[in-house]
C-alpha cells in the first residue's frame, strides 16, 4: 500500500513536471483573476481582502484539483485500476494536489500583498490558516473531481465543490478575520480545531466512499 502510494505520487510529480505548462496556466489564471479584482476594487478593506483572497483561491483550487480525475483518459484509468488499489490512487492524488495547492496559496498571498498590500498582522498564524485551508480544499475537492469524472460532466465540478466546502469556508473566513488585529489572544483556536475536525471527516468519507465510486 505505502509502496503503491509512493510510486503513484512519484508518477504524479514526474508527469506534472513533464507538462509544466499546466503550472504556468494555473499561475496565469491566478494572476489574471487578481488583476481583474484589482481593476474592480483597487483598495479593499482588510476583511474584504481576506474574503476575496479565499474566493480567488477557491476557484483556483477547483480548477487545479478538478484535473486530478477529470483529466485522466478512460484508458489510463482502466490501466491504473488494474495496477493499484483505489485508495492508494486517491491518496497519491491528494498528496500531489495538496502540495500544489499549498504552493499556489502562498503565491496568491505574495501576489495579493504585491497588488493590494497585505493587511495581515499575525503572519505566522495566517500561514498556518493557509496551509490548513489548502488541505481542506484538496480533501473536499478530490472526491468531487472523482464524482464529476464518473458522471462525465466537468460542469458539475464547481457546482458540487461549492456546497461541500461551505462549512470549512465559513470557518476559514472567521479564522482569517482573527489574524487581522494585532491582539494576540484573540485567535479563535476552537474554530481552528473544528476546521481540522472537518478535515478528518472529509478524509474518512473519501476513504470509505471512494472505492464504491471507483468500481465499474
Amino acid at each position: 500500500m505505502w509502496q503503491q502510494i509512493r510510486w503513484l505520487t512519484h508518477k504524479e510529480f514526474v508527469y506534472e513536471w513533464r507538462s509544466r505548462y499546466l503550472w504556468v496556466g494555473l499561475l496565469l489564471y491566478l494572476s489574471a483573476t487578481t488583476f481583474l479584482v484589482y481593476l474592480g476594487i483597487p483598495q479593499p478593506e482588510p476583511s474584504l481582502w481576506v474574503t476575496i483572497y479565499w474566493i480567488v483561491l477557491f476557484f483556483v483550487a477547483v480548477t487545479a484539483v478538478a484535473r486530478s480525475f477529470l483529466q485522466e483518459s478512460r484508458m489510463r484509468m482502466i490501466y491504473m485500476q488494474s495496477l493499484a488499489s483505489p485508495l492508494s490512487l486517491l491518496l497519491a492524488k491528494m498528496i500531489y494536489h495538496g502540495f500544489q495547492l499549498v504552493v499556489l496559496a502562498f503565491v496568491a498571498w505574495l501576489l495579493f500583498a504585491l497588488v493590494f498590500g497585505s493587511p495581515i498582522v499575525q503572519t505566522a498564524l495566517f500561514a498556518l490558516i493557509i496551509f490548513s485551508g489548502s488541505l481542506t480544499f484538496v480533501l473536499a475537492f478530490s472526491m468531487m473531481s472523482a464524482i464529476a469524472a464518473k458522471a462525465n460532466q466537468a460542469m458539475l465540478m464547481t457546482l458540487l465543490c461549492l456546497p461541500v466546502i461551505l462549512p470549512s469556508m465559513l470557518l476559514i473566513w472567521r479564522l482569517s478575520e482573527g489574524v487581522l488585529s494585532p491582539k494576540v489572544g484573540s485567535f479563535p483556536w476552537a474554530d481552528f480545531l473544528m476546521l481540522w475536525a472537518l478535515d478528518v471527516i472529509l478524509l474518512l468519507l473519501a476513504l470509505i466512499l471512494f472505492p464504491y465510486l471507483w468500481r465499474d
Partner: peptide, 9 residues
C-alpha cells in the same frame, strides 16, 4: 456517494 458526503457537511 454524493448524498452521504453532503449530509455529513
Amino acid at each position: 456517494v454524493t448524498n452521504i458526503i453532503f449530509f455529513c457537511m
